[in-house]
Simulated scan of single mutants.
Amino acid sequence: MRPLPEESQWQLLTEAGLHEDFQAMWIGSDDLDEIAARLGLDTTGAFECDLATALRWHGAGSHPSVFWFGPHAPGWTVVLMVAGGLPLFELPDGRVFTFRYLRATGEFHAVPGLYDAAGLDDLDLKDRHGDESDIDPHLVAVGRLTGRFVDRAWLAERRTLCRG
């Protein structure tokens, strides 16, 4: 794996339609049923779609809590809030990276679990609150630790869209 992605992670996500708050988790497990149950997701009526479709579906006035989740890399699941807020999710080994960027205030919340990880010294990771410019280095860090960066193929992959 390359140490840096070919394209800006945050720019790819915003180009895909993330123009509101950005809340996501990368969870060190690929047991989708367990993750859905622990998050309290309502998979009745869930369907598979890419990120652009998920964002359009929310824009059509859907349920206030909407999740798009599925495989990210071997052993890792991504959970992205399309609408609403992320619930608390923890694993005993701490392999959960939680992102929160609130566009209205321009505030990016630090990502617990990244700051002591090896191999990230070249990235400007702030372990406190920051702004939108702090998102991309943190996304790069998560990509390195999970073994996969966000790219155009990742954006096009079908994951499960459901209510919380």
Rank of each mutant, 00 (worst) to 15 (best):
P3Y: 07
P5M: 08
E7C: 00
S8D: 12
L12A: 12
L18W: 11
L18R: 10
H19N: 10
Q23V: 06
W26S: 07
S29A: 14
D31Q: 06
G40L: 09
G40F: 13
G40I: 11
D42M: 04
D42V: 04
E48G: 12
C49S: 14
T53D: 00
T53R: 08
R56C: 04
W57A: 15
W57V: 13
G59W: 13
A60M: 15
P64M: 08
P64C: 07
V66A: 05
V66G: 04
W76I: 04
V79A: 11
M81F: 08
G84R: 07
G84T: 02
L88S: 14
P92W: 12
G94V: 07
V96G: 04
V96A: 02
F99L: 15
R103A: 07
T105L: 00
G106W: 09
G106N: 13
P112I: 09
G113C: 11
L114H: 10
L114W: 08
Y115P: 04
A117R: 14
D121L: 06
D122C: 03
D122F: 06
D127R: 15
R128W: 05
P137H: 14
L139S: 06
V140M: 07
V142F: 11
R148G: 07
F149K: 02
A153F: 10
A156R: 05
R158H: 08
R158G: 00
L161N: 01
C162H: 02
R163W: 05
